[in-house]
Design a protein around this nucleic acid. Structure first.
Length: 267
DNA sequence: AACGAATGGGAAT
DNA sequence: TTCCCCTTCGTTC
């Protein structure tokens, strides 16, 4: 689940459900030790940047921001009903308000930090295609100077924040780019196109809650809802025929993550 | 019951 | 580069 669009969706939903309200905060699992310092306090705002979430509370003292990073397995379950079910023992953090509640579990990071620490996290990140203030020029400077493969650069959060393994594969397919090409062999227009497609795809993901990257012409259009097996061009389709040329989709490890591509359509 | 994989990332080597 | 953390779920024994 957790690529940038998921995180921004959680921020949007939690702002609506919790911001400006007093929250009951607990850690059924016990590993979020700061829960009691936030319990009964007002959540001022929720912010998403790349794959990072920040919850700012009205509390005294320098530590007032909960920094959350879901990692590979982390999940957030949000329920817009007033009566919470008893929590599973693995729930790291639970927020409860009058109108609903949310559970976080399996997360890589869940910590109460200062504003400076929050700033430091964001300083390490590249531009986020889902933020209106994003400057793709910052990312281009990194890409244009790098010998690393573009498939790795798209996954590097200090280059561009929010793209994960699914969007990486699909963006490169849609651009016709070989994931193994060095960043510096791209021209500026190729990067501009990649960036604008990232804005388009992640925005669509935020809107629909799903990663759907295939153009209508490249999938079976019968039926209203896009079938799961029609949602992607190459991600998770090793050995299946490319939707456009029929050649079996290739996959290989890149920096310990599987990258998928069509060796004929992507040069 | 055991194992592997999964939309991630940081620290250690 | 390798290892380690986080949790769930489907497959295999």
């Amino acid at each position: 689940m957790p690529e940038g669009h998921t995180i921004h969706g959680i921020a949007r939903d939690h702002a609506k459900l919790f911001a400006g309200r007093e929250l009951a905060v607990s850690s059924p699992q016990g590993r979020f030790g700061s829960a009691s310092r936030l319990d009964g306090r007002v959540l001022a705002e929720v912010e998403a940047y790349g794959k990072h979430l920040f919850y700012r509370f009205d509390v005294p003292g320098p530590q007032r921001v909960v920094h959350v990073h879901l990692g590979l397995f982390g999940k957030v379950a949000t329920v817009s009903e007033p009566d919470p079910v008893p929590p599973r023992p693995t729930i790291r953090l639970r927020f409860v308000a009058d109108g609903g509640y949310a559970d976080l579990y399996g997360v890589t990071t869940c910590a109460l930090v200062t504003e400076d620490e929050r700033d430091a996290v964001i300083d390490r990140l590249g531009p986020d295609p889902l933020r209106p203030d994003a400057d793709p020029g910052d990312a281009w400077r990194r890409v244009s100077r790098s010998r690393a493969p573009i498939g790795g650069l798209l996954m590097d959060q200090s280059v561009i924040a929010g793209v994960g393994n699914v969007y990486r594969a699909e963006l490169l397919y849609r651009a016709g780019l070989d994931p193994w090409r060095a960043g510096r062999t791209l021209d500026e227009q190729a990067w501009a196109n990649l960036w604008s497609d990232a804005v388009r795809l992640l925005s669509a993901g935020l809107r629909t809650g799903r990663i759907i990257t295939t153009a209508p012409a490249d999938r079976d259009r019968t039926g209203g809802r896009v079938r799961a097996q029609d949602a992607h061009y190459v991600y998770g389709r090793t050995g299946l025929p490319c939707r456009r040329c029929g050649r079996p989709v290739t996959s290989a490890p890149m920096l310990s993550r599987t990258v998928y591509w069509c060796a004929r359509c992507q040069r």
